[in-house]
Design a protein around this nucleic acid. Sequence first.
DNA 1: CCATTTTTCTATAAGTCTATAGAATTCGCT
DNA 2: AGCGAATTCTATAGACTTATAGAAAAATGG
Lengths: 205, 205
Amino acid sequence: MKPRNTDSPRYQSQKQAAIRAAAAVFSEKGFHGASTADIAERLGIKQGSLYYYFDSKEEALEDVCLYGLRQYVDNMDAIAGTDEPFEARLLAVVGNHLGSYRSKSEALKVHNDERLYLPAERRVRLKKLGTHYREQLELMIHDGVAAGAVRETIDSHFLAQSIIGVCNGLGEIIVRDPEADVFELARKCTDLLLHGMVPGHYKGE
Amino acid sequence: MKPRNTDSPRYQSQKQAAIRAAAAVFSEKGFHGASTADIAERLGIKQGSLYYYFDSKEEALEDVCLYGLRQYVDNMDAIAGTDEPFEARLLAVVGNHLGSYRSKSEALKVHNDERLYLPAERRVRLKKLGTHYREQLELMIHDGVAAGAVRETIDSHFLAQSIIGVCNGLGEIIVRDPEADVFELARKCTDLLLHGMVPGHYKGE
DNA sequence: CCATTTTTCTATAAGTCTATAGAATTCGCT
DNA sequence: AGCGAATTCTATAGACTTATAGAAAAATGG
């Protein structure tokens, strides 16, 4: 183990850069397909030097996943804490999810696709964040039911998973097409989830 | 290159078994994380012997992906070819998608998560099948609009991607919980897509 | 039941990868 | 400029992988 000053501003900014470099490489080649040499090269240093910032390749993956997930979950907490009407909160949730694909697509993609390759003990913190996210969403749905904005016959676990699924599906559009209008997509997505695709319901549009 | 009789019934059944073994291992460890030794072990033969059935590890991945995708796409063709009303066809599509997670979850999961690690020239056949699938779905949506079953304001690319997304999201429930009732999930999913989560629309339920 | 074909095994070459240790360089500060 | 700390470099051990070649074993069929 090397001596390192984890508080120095230089260390912090390089570590941040290292995480982003790892995110980019993992997202392109996958965890096992990427080598530490790939990550170091993108960062502009040599392979061995990378171990100044990560104790192991697995730690790098964990850091990338946490980085990708953190802001995303924080935003959810903020949304769940407001007393906006259900529809507005749903729009905010969808917007947050889709927005993450644009701003930090790589780290979040790595979390989605590669986190399973982490050993169980490295996944605890991620799991906590993930279940927290879903719980907040399910609570929101319960509120929606109580407020009469959501049918009582829909169970919240099913619905939460559906919402997450649609967002991930649309995330592919966002990643594929850098021109895609994220806000417009979020609006259409929320509308679909609320009112379905069938025409002629009272809400005129 | 070894001499092999690809027509003998024994070869065919062992090759099938090899593809399934590869699917299981790739799905658990990922393409790069899995070794040819892992696949051979699951099949009950030695590492070197595997090359009697695959020219390379990449070919194994391609075969697994094709295996996972084929039946899934064939079913879509059958569904698109009927003249059932739109709602019934949507239910069939969703049921097919969710059902695939139950029956061949491993190969389809491999296709979803690992196909990107194939070199471009090995991906052509997969791409063809995939875009064919989405085109059929978009055509179905156009029919639905023409028949008045779908709002005109929804664009079919967006909707197709949303449908695929919800199904993948619910696929996680199916994979996680072997007791989950796939047909019931498909019904609820179709209902959500058609009518949304908001209560009080004319269709009483 | 023997001869031929098919399938599997053993052994290994050649390459890649992670992680470490210690030397060399750069940085921040006075 | 010069000292000590922080950062990066070089070099390498040790493990693991894919793919191949030729020997061995098992199946097939006349």
